[in-house]
Structure formats: C-alpha cells, structure tokens
C-alpha cells in the first residue's frame, strides 16, 4: 500500500531551505478513488497560496496532507525541512510548526476560550501557565475578542468562534498556517470579520495556504492562486492573471460559475 519514502537527496535539502512546503509527485487514493494525482507544489517561506476548485476536487485533502491529517501514499512532502514519514515524532514536530484552521472551527467546547488557546502551548510547548495566558491574550487581542476570553465557545457567534480558532493556532507560533474553507460555515455578515483578521495576518509574513472561495481575499493577499479539479492542479498563476486571463477551459468554466451569479 505505502511506498517507502526515498531518502532526501542533496538537491531537495538545499531547496528545503527556501521553501516552507515542498510536495513532489504526491498521489493519494481513498480505496480505489484517486483523490490526489501527481501533485507538485512548492510553497515559498512567507508565501500566501490560495487553493480553489469545485467541491470534491481534492483541495482540502491536499492541505490536510501537509500536516498529515491525511496520509499520502506516493511521492514526498517536506515541511519546514522535515520529510513526512510514518514516524510519529516526525509528524508531531511538523504539527507543532503548522497551524490549522478548520471549516467548522473545532474549538473544544468544554474549555473556555482562553483555555482553548493555552492548551497546546502548555502541553506541547511546555510553556508556563502565566506565559501561555499572556500569549493567548495577546493573540485574542489581535483577533479583537479579548473580552470573550473566559466564555465558552458555545456562547460565541460563528465569526467569533472562527477568530478564536485562528488565535488558538497562532498561540503555537506556527511558521505555516493552513486554512480549510474558514468562512464556508459562516453567515455572510460574519465572513468579513474573519477575512479582516486573515488579511491582517497575511501582512505579517507567516506562510499561509488557504482553501477558500473568497475571491476578494484571494486577490488582496494571494501571491499565487492554485486551481484544482479532479485531484489535479490544473492551473496556477498570480491572482490578477488567474482571474482576468485564465488559461484553461475548466478554470474559465469554474470562474464563470462562481463569479457570475
């Protein structure tokens, strides 16, 4: 089932220093369904990548492979210079550097907002409680909800919950942030507050890979837009050319569907 990853060669090593994520010839199957086909993608340090495409095209699977929530079966993925393998220590050290924001927030409902934010720093980074609290409050201020710190997630609106989720990821001081359709589960009036936070983050130099259909966001912050369909990367380009001058038929069709309504 699984092909043993090849040892990292010299070329890869030097490339790893310039790239936050390197995906080379990555394939993934769900049973017989070929969900990722020959993915080649290099993400530079500090680069903002927007991944879009129709539903079922494999874009969520793609970013979930980066922190090993999904396992790839062929090819290699190198994150922050560490190659993903079956070694759980390897996986955990990558996950410490890679934050993830989910479509459905996935906050811990039995913990307060503050506890949600301090949990990983305390237990994974072994940070003292007082310091973790200070860090958490700093990021809660960054996402503009410090006053909610002692509430439970169930007491917040969707937009507020998603901002807590972003703060929670930031508390681990990750070098890469993955966003998996962060605004898709939100009511329209809450989308802006989350996007504003993400736009602000983008200006701070963190590497971001973002699955989203928010084309305004893609144009504002994206360095590159990647269009996926049927498990393949069909087209990648800078946002202006991608939207104004799409090359591929399927891209044109997709853009016409999401823009002309």
């Amino acid at each position: 089932m699984t092909q043993k990853p090849e040892p990292m060669n010299e070329e890869t090593k030097s490339a790893a220093e310039n790239y936050a994520v390197i995906m080379r010839d990555v394939h993934k199957w769900y049973g017989k369904f070929h969900v990722l086909k020959n993915i080649n993608l290099n993400v530079g340090v500090g680069e903002k990548i927007v991944v879009c495409g129709p539903s079922g095209s494999g874009k969520s699977t793609l970013i979930r492979c980066i922190n090993r929530l999904e396992e790839h079966q062929q090819g290699e993925i190198i994150v922050e210079g560490i190659e993903l393998s079956h070694d759980i220590k390897n996986i955990e050290s990558i996950r410490r550097e890679v934050g993830m924001v989910f479509q459905h927030f996935n906050l811990f409902p039995h913990l307060t907002v503050l506890e949600n934010c301090t949990l990983a720093p305390i237990w994974v980074r072994k940070m003292p409680l007082a310091e973790a609290n200070a860090v958490a409050m700093k990021y809660l201020e960054r996402v503009k909800i410090p006053e909610q710190a002692n509430k439970y997630p169930g007491q917040l609106s969707g937009g507020q919950q998603q901002r807590v989720a972003i703060a929670r990821s930031l508390c681990m001081k990750p070098r890469i942030l993955l966003f998996d359709e962060p605004t898709s589960a939100l009511d329209p009036e809450m989308i802006k507050e989350v996007l504003d936070v993400m736009i602000q983050l983008a200006s701070e130099g963190i590497t971001m890979i973002c699955v989203t259909h928010e084309m305004g966001f893609a144009r504002t912050v994206g360095d590159r837009v990647i269009f996926m369909d049927n498990g393949e990367i069909i087209e990648e380009n800078n946002p202006d050319d991608f939207f104004l001058n799409p090359q591929h038929e399927r891209t044109k069709l997709f853009l016409s569907q999401i823009l002309d309504h």
């Binding site: 922190n67 929530l69 955990e92 050290s93 990558i94 996950r95 410490r96 890679v98 934050g99 993830m100 989910f102 459905h104 996935n106 906050l107 811990f108 949990l119 990983a120 237990w123 994974v124 681990m172």
Partner: peptide, 22 residues
Amino acid sequence: PKGQFEAADSMGLHYWSAMRLI
C-alpha cells in the same frame, strides 16, 4: 465529532494528552 480529534492532532498533542485533555 471527528473534528475534535483532528484539532487535537493538528496541534501536535500526543495521543494520551489528546485523550486526557480533550
């Protein structure tokens, strides 16, 4: 929900920490 496990995993928590805390 599966998302709770995924959120715990994505933070780099060990299995036992994730179970005990979340």
